[in-house]
């Protein structure tokens, strides 16, 4: 069964380090380790990190009219920063792996089953 682990955290004020620098490598290290753990466990179904919420645009259609807005859907302290797709046997296993995400210690990971349309 596939689960999506949605990674919510409060955005940091300082800019992310530039790719190629030792600081960037240090930031990425726990994430690369985690991804490797998921691959080794055979549960890695994909995942992406998202650019900060300042880059978000929301769009909706009301009465046939498209409304475009600057910003994320919900203006809250914690924002969606990325996600993993985890292919696990049950919720206990998914929660076990989701709890390893570094952000779990500062933010919150929402775990939701992915709808099976097959």
């Amino acid at each position: 069964m596939k689960y999506m682990a949605l990674i919510y955290d409060a955005p940091v004020s300082r800019p992310d380090p530039t790719p190629g620098t030792p600081e960037f490598a240090a930031m990425m290290e726990p994430w690369e380790k985690l991804t490797q753990i998921y691959i080794d466990a055979g549960i890695m179904g994909g995942g992406e990190a998202l650019m900060p919420v300042e880059t978000a645009t929301s769009v909706r259609v009301r009465g046939g009219k498209t409304e475009t807005m600057d910003g994320p859907f919900a203006e809250t302290k914690e924002q969606l920063g990325g996600f993993y797709i985890l292919d696990c046997k049950d919720l206990d296993e998914a929660l076990h792996y989701a709890a390893m995400i570094p952000v779990a210690e500062t933010g919150t990971i929402e775990v939701r089953p992915v709808m099976d349309l097959g």
Partner: peptide, 14 residues
């Protein structure tokens, strides 16, 4: 059912 909450005795950690 949809979130596959397991029907098992939990492991030691939990």
């Amino acid at each position: 059912q949809t979130a596959a909450i397991p029907f098992t005795i939990p492991d030691d950690a939990n």
